[in-house]
Simulated assay, not measured.
Amino acid sequence: MKRKFFTTALLSCCLIICLAAVYADINGKWIGSINTPDGNAIQVSYDFKADGEKLTGTATSQMGEVPIENGKIKGDDFSFSVNVSGTDYPHKGKVYADSCALDIDFGGSGSHFIVKRAK
Rank of each mutant, 00 (worst) to 15 (best):
M1W: 14
M1K: 13
R3E: 13
R3T: 15
K4N: 14
T7P: 00
T8E: 11
A9N: 10
L11W: 13
S12L: 11
C13Y: 11
C14D: 05
L15T: 15
L15V: 15
C18Y: 11
L19E: 12
L19Y: 13
A21M: 07
A21E: 14
V22K: 15
V22F: 14
Y23K: 07
Y23T: 09
D25I: 08
D25A: 12
I26W: 03
N27G: 07
N27S: 07
G28T: 02
W30G: 05
W30I: 04
W30F: 09
I31C: 10
I31K: 13
G32M: 01
G32I: 05
G32E: 01
N35S: 07
N35E: 13
D38M: 12
G39L: 10
Q43W: 03
Q43H: 12
V44D: 00
S45H: 13
S45C: 09
Y46C: 04
Y46S: 02
D47V: 08
D47H: 08
F48G: 04
F48E: 10
F48L: 06
K49V: 07
D51S: 11
D51W: 07
D51N: 12
G52N: 09
E53G: 09
E53H: 04
E53Y: 00
L55H: 06
T56W: 00
G57W: 11
T58I: 11
T58L: 04
A59E: 03
T60N: 12
G64P: 04
E65D: 04
V66L: 01
V66S: 03
P67R: 08
P67E: 04
E69K: 13
E69N: 05
N70P: 01
I73F: 01
I73H: 02
G75F: 11
D76G: 02
D76T: 11
D77M: 11
D77P: 01
F78P: 04
F78Q: 02
F78N: 01
S79P: 03
F80W: 11
F80G: 01
F80K: 05
F80C: 01
S81Q: 14
S81V: 10
V82M: 08
N83H: 03
N83I: 06
N83P: 02
V84Q: 08
V84P: 05
V84A: 11
S85G: 09
G86R: 06
G86F: 07
T87C: 02
Y89C: 03
P90G: 03
K92Y: 04
G93H: 03
K94A: 04
V95M: 00
V95Y: 00
V95Q: 00
A97G: 00
D98H: 00
D98V: 00
C100H: 05
C100E: 14
A101V: 10
A101L: 12
L102H: 02
F106P: 06
F106R: 14
G107L: 08
G108M: 12
G110Q: 15
S111N: 12
S111V: 12
F113N: 10
I114M: 13
V115H: 03
R117I: 05
R117F: 06
A118N: 08
K119F: 07
